[in-house]
Each structure stands twice: as structure tokens, then as C-alpha cells.
Design a protein around this nucleic acid. Structure first.
Lengths: 334, 334
DNA sequence: TAAAGTTACTAAACCGGTTTAGTTGATTAA
DNA sequence: TTAATCAACTAAACCGGTTTAGTAACTTTA
């Protein structure tokens, strides 16, 4: 393809490679105007495009970062990636995307692959099954920024939604509508802080309004097996007047369960979901949700990462991005 | 970060750089078993990771391709990218993603950026405003594969849904339900073959069933300005019994227009959309759609591209991926 | 007026690999 | 017995830039 190299430009302009290189890097310190002009002309004439690979070889910086997500196709992940990508492109960086498909092993392989590619840093939504591996890479000097999931309380660079406040506000919204028996549906905590914090927000709101916390109303849901108790049975046994789901797939499955059992939202039971639901406006009942800002999270994550790369620091930052309550029609006052 | 280099491995094993390099590239032709073993041990002991940048410098292949899409966040694009990415990763390639945000100038810049990065090839959903530029790059020897949009009939490598057949089948489905006045809503053709073919599929189906083609029932829609005539006015003036929309945003906006005017689907009018609608099952009326296979399109596109890169051929291939009709509840027999 | 700076360059080392063209000692064929 | 072949390596050139250490000519300062 492009075969014109620096030496050709230099020869054409009648200067040395070094001078041509200095010119191309904007260091005109000791260079006559004429020389500059001749090199500029040579570059234009020969249609010269520098080879970034050769450049990187010396620079050791690859101007590339890695992004490890669970599924690029998801509503949340794709928007995070867009934020990362926009910020990177604006700062002459490129982002390489790796899907883990929710598999910790694929996650480990992705991190290793990115290391071998010598990316300057990594942004990751980690499953939490590779903390050992990740700290090894951090110790080797690889800058890493987490997002979406906080797996434990250890110090790390991380960008998160303000889960606790969001869950608190959402729960309080339901309480203000008169709900007292609010069923909190979550994935198993498994030491994932991001999940525990939502629970705390929920518990705090109940406590503030003197509503006792009923453990029967804290339901667990699992990616593989789904609900442990079917929604209609939860209603039968524990009489919640509202569901507060903590994860889009939970919202979706709950909705399916309610539809199957002919339980109507919001007449029979209210529903408030964590995470925006695409196309909600066309739903039979448009769902009220806590909306995160994945694009902003992507931007902030890359801002932090590129900053750490540039400054070669790695002081742990935890940045919280506020959520907002998107009120639609799935919650009824009682 | 990793500072162990080939020369260190070579010294540790007591061989020359060349021998170590041969070993690492699996060329054991004239190398004793012991030597191999010593190098293997050295690599393990020193935890050596080859630098792909240095490697690429000589190889001239970057093992990277570029993907230019309009919005990585979209339902269709994100799935294409996932297909591309999976296929690339499986073949030791990496994909760099560039968003154009529907802007032809950003598209041009993306192509140039990818060229400068010396990607081995490009997969693109082009706006059609850069055909000149794209053929320049093709002439320079850059392998390019198109998808999603065929801008004119010129020879090129391209992967598309079988638009004509899909539109024919969908129209015939409506006709079999008794519809004779089917309003075809499309973006302005603007020499975009992919749009014209859908129209032809529609026209062919009408013709096969001896239904005259009424030009009033071919409506244009535009990304910036929306409908030229509001859906309710189209109904008032031309009495269609069904709408067949050619693009997800059109489906969405039509649905909004019908909702606003309190026109009920499918009781007052039927609706069939091109492109899958996320979360359709929860819609007030689940929409019947023509479903494309974006993941397969991504896989096929990268398969073709990597093949062309490897074989250094560039014979034009046009590959059609079949669509399927996803029948839900928005079309009523009359 | 000689030493010390400046200016405007260049030669050569370097980044970390791959590859080509040898080299050496042992074995085989003429 | 000597040339040819071969196995098992190595030295050095090369990929295309960046950077360091000079150098030569000219100007300034003590």
C-alpha cells in the first residue's frame, strides 16, 4: 500500500531523516523557514503518511486501550462503549473491544490478550472472578479502570452509578405512592458491592419511613435459573403491592411472569425497574425506571484512564454518576 | 511494563536471536530437540511476551481491520459488530470500530484514520457520499467490504439481506390476509439500491396478485424531517388498510403518529415493519416484522474480508443473507 | 582575538522483532 | 581422498520511524 517513507521525504527535500522527523513532530526549534517549506512540499508531493507502527516501536505507548464488556450488544454496554470510544477518538486513542459473554474464563483470556497487545490501559466490567489476575496486571503497571460492577470494597479506580441513592429515591417514590410491601428483586449479592448498595438504599428508605424490612420481600434471581419463586407465587404468599427489580433481565422476566399469570400492571401490582427499557413508550404499560447514564460512565471511565496513563499515577478514584427516575405508568398510588 | 525481550531469552538459552525467533514462530526445521527445550524453558522462566508492534513492523500486516458503522449503539449495528468481532477474534484479528453518527464527513475521516493506522482492511456501511474516496482506497489496494447499504449497482464486495425477497414475502403475507391497499413507507431512494430493491419486492408482490400499484401509497420519510404527510392524513386521503415500513425509525415514528391520533393497530390499520423491534413482546401490540440477521451479516462480512486479505484477491462478491418474517399481532385479516 | 555560544543541520544508535545470507563441523558420494 | 551435502546454528541487514550525540559555520562575549 503506502510505500513512501520518511527517508524518501528526506531525500526529496534534500535533508536528513532526522530533520524530516523533527519537522513532522512539530519541533521547529533550529530549522530554517526554507527547510520547513521544502519538507512540507515533499510531504505533500509524495503523499507521505507516517507509519504508526514504526512510531510506536520507539514510543512504547500504543495509543490503544482495551475495553472488556460482557456483551457489546446490550443497551447499557453499547452506550458505555460509545462514550469510551468518543472520548478516545477525541484524544487520538483507539479502543479495542473484547466481549466476555459473561464467562470469567473468556474475561481472563481477554485481559491477557490485551496485555500482549500492549494496550496502554484497560476499562473493564469485571465478573469478579479474576480479581487475582487483575491485581497482578495492576502490579505489573497496567492502568485499569472498572465500571458497572464493584466486586468488593478494595481500593480501585472505578466509575459507578450512584446505586445507593438511586435505589433510595426509587423506593421512596414508591413509599410516597402509598406502597408499604415493596418486593426487592435482585441477583444474588455474591459480594458484589453494586448489588449490596442498591439493597442498602432500599433498606434505608424503608427505615426512614418506619416500614419494617420483611425478608420475604427480598427475592433472588439468577441468570441461569431465573426466579426461585414464580412472581405469581410471591404475590400469593407475601402480598407485595409493588416490585422493584434491580436488573433489566429481571424486569423482563418478571414482566413475562406477570403476563403469563394474567396479573395486570399497575392495577394488580406496581413495577419499578432499575435500568432503562428500550422502546418503553410502546409498551402495553410503559415502565417507570431508574435511568443510568451509561454514555457518561464511558466518558468518565476513559477520562480517568487516559489521565492515569498520561500522568503515570494510579491513585484510586471512585466516581459516582447520578441516576434519574424516569416516571412512566407502571406505578400506581394506593 | 514487560521488558523481557527476545535477546534476553536468546542469551538465557545460550542461542542467537535468530534461533530464538525461529523457535517462537514454530519453524523447528534445523534445530535440535535440546535447543528447543532450552528456549522453551527460557521463555517460561523469563515470562517472555513477544511485542506485536515490533513483529508487525516487519510483517507489514497489522492483523487489524476497521469497522465503520453509523452508530454502535443501534440494534442492528451492534449485532453486526458482534459478528465481526467474534469472527475476527477467532482468527487472531482485531477490529477497530469507528462511528460516523450518520455524518458523511466523519465517515471520510474515519476511513482516512483507518488507512493511516494501516489496517489490513475495512468493513463499512457507507452513506454513499464517499464513493469517490472509497474507490481511491480500493485502488491503493485496501480491501473493503460493504454491508447494510448498497449505494449503486457498481461491482463491489458486499453482504446484504435479501431485501427484495424479504419485501416480496412480507407484502404477499399482507395480501394473503386480504389487504389490497398497502402503504409502503420508505426513506427517499437517493440511488440506494437497498431501498429500491425493497420497493421492487413490494411492487412484484402486488403485480403477482394483480393489484394495481397506487403511487399515493408510496410514502417517503426522512431522517431529519420525518413524514411528509402525517400518518392519520395518509389514512384519510388514501385509505390504506396496512402500512409496511422499511426502516426501524420509520416504524417507531409511525407508531407514535398512530398513537397520537388514536388510531388502533391492528383494528383500524395493520402494520408490518422492516427490522426487528427490541422488546416487541411487551408492546401494546407486538409488531410483526421482517427480521434480518445482523450477526450473520457481520460474520460473513469479516469472513469475506479476511479471505480477501489473505489471498490478496479482490474479486467482487455479493452475498445475500435471507430474512425471516416474525409474525406477531399487528396484522389483521380483512 | 580567542573562547564560548548559537544556529541549522546530520550520522548513527535505537526500538524489538524477522529474515536472509552465511558459517562450521560432521557425513556422504564420487 | 576430496568435493558435495547437510544439520544446526549465527551475524547482520532490515522494517520505518525517534532520539541522542555530534559537527560545521557563524555570531557573540571577555
Amino acid at each position: 500500500m503506502a510505500k513512501v517513507k520518511l527517508i524518501d521525504v528526506a531525500r526529496f527535500a534534500g535533508v536528513s531523516k532526522s530533520t524530516a522527523s523533527q519537522f513532522l513532530n512539530g519541533r521547529f526549534d533550529y530549522m530554517s523557514k526554507e527547510t520547513q517549506e521544502r519538507i512540507r512540499a515533499a510531504v505533500a508531493e509524495l503523499d507521505y503518511v507516517p507509519n504508526p507502527i514504526a512510531r510506536n516501536l520507539k514510543a512504547t505507548k500504543t495509543k490503544t486501550i482495551g475495553v472488556v464488556v460482557r456483551d457489546i450488544t446490550g443497551f447499557y454496554s453499547s452506550r458505555v462503549i460509545r462514550g469510551v470510544d468518543d472520548y478516545c477518538k477525541a484524544n487520538s486513542y483507539n479502543a479495542l473491544i473484547y466481549n466476555t459473554d459473561f464467562d470469567p474464563e473468556t474475561e481472563a483470556k481477554s485481559i491477557e490478550a490485551l496485555y500482549q497487545l500492549r494496550v496502554d490501559g484497560i476499562i473493564i466490567a469485571s465478573s469478579g472472578n479474576n480479581t487475582q489476575l487483575i491485581s497482578e496486571y495492576i502490579n505489573k503497571g497496567m492502568p485499569i479502570v472498572h465500571f458497572q460492577i464493584e466486586n468488593d470494597g478494595s481500593e480501585q479506580n472505578i466509575i459507578l452509578s450512584d446505586y445507593k441513592k438511586a435505589a433510595f429515591d426509587a423506593t421512596e417514590y414508591l413509599i410516597n405512592l402509598g406502597h408499604k410491601r415493596i418486593c426487592f428483586v435482585t441477583q444474588d449479592f455474591k459480594n458484589v458491592n453494586s448489588r449490596i448498595e442498591r439493597y442498602q438504599g432500599y433498606a434505608d428508605a424503608l427505615s426512614k419511613h418506619d416500614i419494617p424490612l420483611d425478608d420475604n420481600l427480598v427475592q433472588r434471581w439468577d441468570r441461569e435459573t431465573g426466579f426461585q419463586t414464580a412472581p405469581k407465587d410471591i404475590i400469593k404468599s407475601h402480598a407485595p403491592t409493588a416490585f422493584f427489580t434491580q436488573h433489566l433481565p429481571i424486569t423482563v422476566e418478571l414482566l413475562r411472569g406477570l403476563n403469563r399469570a394474567n396479573i395486570s400492571v399497575p392495577d394488580d401490582v406496581s413495577l419499578l425497574g432499575f435500568d432503562e427499557v428500550p422502546m418503553a413508550e410502546f409498551f402495553k404499560v410503559p415502565i417507570t425506571v431508574v435511568k443510568q447514564e451509561p454514555y457518561s460512565i464511558g466518558v468518565e471511565a476513559s477520562k480517568l484512564l487516559l489521565n492515569n496513563i498520561a500522568k503515570e499515577t494510579n491513585i484510586s478514584h471512585k466516581i459516582l454518576i447520578p441516576c434519574s427516575l424516569e416516571i412512566r405508568e407502571s406505578c400506581k398510588a394506593i
